[in-house]
Design a protein around this nucleic acid. Structure first.
Lengths: 174, 174
DNA sequence: GCTAGTTGTTGTGGGCCCTCACAATGAGGG
DNA sequence: CCCTCATTGTGAGGGCCCACAACAACTAGC
């Protein structure tokens, strides 16, 4: 094991760890949210709707998923009574997605469940570690974003919201 | 923006960044591997087979996916001629998965493609950063692993290989 | 031998995500 | 007015992942 080999392998090991670690995080989160009829993706959608009706295209670009994926998620949320679709009188192509009271309650339960789980995950990291981790993620993300062909659905219809934007609060243009 | 609020939000922001960043990484990787008829999951399977036949249950526990997922992946790889299934004379329940010459070539092409992409992703991180990132991932992962109900398919029949194990080389028991 | 439990794999059904193709609507130029 | 062009959302089809249930084969105990 030469020094050079170790250095070369480091990035691969890192990426592999990143993938598996995040897979596990996602699993735990989904597991907890499942009790409230949600999932990571569904809760994200719901969170973005708490401040008012949103069009599906805005959800798609905000969360960087294909429009088709939003259709699917909203279908499920509508079926479970968490959201409603309403036509927009101004633009009849648009169907505005609105959260229902039941959806609002589910979202709050999900936020509580998440708050019980996420701090635990990072409990062994110091304040400096977390800051460093965030900084590194931003650096990596910047590189990765420049590498992708960035198709995502039916052409790049929408400006991609940068990762720095606060996804949590659901700061989505309507 | 009080100090307390910043601290509380930090973990949530961190987890959100982690998920989106890794999603993007996976997208770029899949995009590059697609040219060679592979994907992240398929390449992982193929990599584990380069040193000899493996049973599907071993693949499932090595990569922490459900046995059903392995069936699906192997189905696809077999359809594309990258692997073959052979019965095990010793244990006729078992179907050993073997890599074909075509599969070996695809795996090598995939490794080259990956080597062209992954170092670029971490190019802005110093050697110390990478070491710190790895350390943090292990710490987080330890916590996360202890939080999961750990179902994963048909009961916990198999010992889970720890994350420290070298997934890259495909160090799987046969 | 024969039954009971365990292990390995696959069928079914579902969730999340993608791309491609297309209908419907709205906006602008002839 | 009509005809193109862009935008919004969806249907079809595929990949990866899961849980649950069924089935085949091995193993242990009687």
């Amino acid at each position: 094991m030469l020094e050079v080999e170790v250095k070369r392998m480091n990035e691969f090991e890192l990426s592999e760890h990143l993938l598996t670690c995040v897979t596990r995080i996602r699993r735990v989160l989904d597991e907890r949210l499942k009790e409230h009829g949600l999932s990571v993706a569904r809760k994200r959608m719901l969170g973005a709707l708490t401040e008012g009706p949103v069009r599906q295209a805005a959800l798609a670009s905000a969360f960087e998923v294909a429009p088709r994926t939003v259709t699917e998620l909203v279908d499920g949320l509508e079926r479970d009574g968490f959201v409603e679709r309403r036509g927009d009188p101004q633009d009849r192509r648009v169907r505005l997605v609105c959260i229902t009271p039941a959806g609002r309650r589910a979202n709050e339960r999900a936020m509580i469940a998440r708050a019980e789980v996420i701090p635990q995950m990072f409990a062994d990291l110091s304040e400096e570690d977390r800051a460093a981790l965030l900084r590194m993620l931003v650096a990596v993300d910047k590189r990765v974003a420049s590498m992708s062909a960035a198709g995502l659905g039916a052409g790049d219809r929408s400006a991609v919201i940068p990762l720095d934007a606060p996804f949590i609060a659901g700061d989505v243009q309507r």
